[in-house]
Computed example of a mutant assay.
Amino acid sequence: MSPLTITLSNGVELPAIGLGVFQTPPDVTTASVEEALRVGYRHIDTAAAYGNEREVGDGIRRSGLARDEVFIETKLWISDYGYDSALHAFDKSAGKLGVDQLDLLLLHQPLPSAFDRTLDAYRALEKLLADGRVRAIGVSNFMPEHLERLLAETSAVPVVNQIEVHPYFQQTALQRLHVQHGILTQAWSPIGGITSYRGGEKRTFDDPVLLEIAGQHGKSAAQVMLRWHLQEGRSAIPKSIKPARIAENFDVFDFELTTEQLVAIDALDTGVRGGPEPESITLEAYGREIPEA
């Protein structure tokens, strides 16, 4: 089974389905990454703030795959924003991952309360891109106003904005802005896991529309949601530490949703965000030191 790839605006090929390791404990991260790569994943998404970059690197090495066979994506945390700090943050992440070059490096949050630091951090990413230390750069959790200011004050258009997207929260206006600027929408919580662990009234996994579509294809609701992302042109980063779920989430390349089914899933949007509002992520509330490599 070959993973579908998406060509980013700068020509870099990104495997559309990646394994996410948010909240994956370090002591199980290595095994999860190794299992995902064994199943066929070729894209791993981590972050400095997750505290498991070192274990991601270990899992990649244990897989036996060559470095250029695995797309490695990570994110800088807000505590390391600013030009010089962001350059050093790259060294910390690359050191923990055990690589000289990252495939995709993102700013994890817009940090609107100190956006000048965000801009300086992004300029550091532009320098790393120019120097060949990273192959592509982007952002995460940026809303339209953050993207517009970034685009006005920096040179390289981010190739990716990784945001919360699942059937119950689709951010369609933001996605339209991405299309206008050639930015790939990459979905975190792509199967609505956040609707389960945040204790919401409705879980995507129990949605009757998704379950009916799943039954028509002999697939699970999670597989239907991932297929929905792929057919609408998004990258998706599902997470799991269970081998069966890791394999299930990758088994989405052998069926196709109809136009009617895509429309039915689009109609499930509630407009209710599961994660924190980007404006609430401040240094005062969320700043923390990212350890050295």
Rank of each mutant, 00 (worst) to 15 (best):
M1C: 08
P3H: 12
I6H: 14
I6S: 13
I6C: 12
G11T: 12
E13L: 14
L14A: 05
G20T: 00
V21K: 09
P26G: 04
P26L: 10
P26V: 10
V39Y: 01
G40T: 09
G40K: 09
Y41A: 03
I44M: 10
D45L: 12
D45E: 13
A48C: 04
A49H: 04
N52W: 00
V56S: 02
G57Q: 07
G57I: 00
I60K: 01
A66S: 14
D68Q: 11
D68K: 04
S79Q: 01
Y81V: 11
D91G: 12
K96Y: 05
G98V: 02
Q101W: 05
D103S: 11
L105M: 08
L105G: 10
L107P: 11
H108F: 05
L111D: 02
L111K: 03
S113N: 14
D116W: 06
A121D: 01
K127M: 06
G132F: 12
R133C: 08
E148R: 07
E148A: 14
E153F: 08
V157A: 06
V159C: 06
V160W: 06
N161P: 03
N161E: 04
E164W: 10
H166K: 05
L174I: 00
R176W: 09
G193T: 01
R198T: 15
E201R: 15
E201I: 14
K202T: 14
K202Y: 11
D206Q: 13
D206F: 12
V209D: 02
E212H: 14
G215K: 04
G215Q: 08
A222E: 13
E232A: 09
G233D: 06
G233I: 12
G233C: 03
P238R: 09
N249D: 11
V252A: 00
D254L: 07
E256I: 14
L262R: 14
A264P: 02
R273C: 09
G275P: 05
P278C: 01
A285T: 12
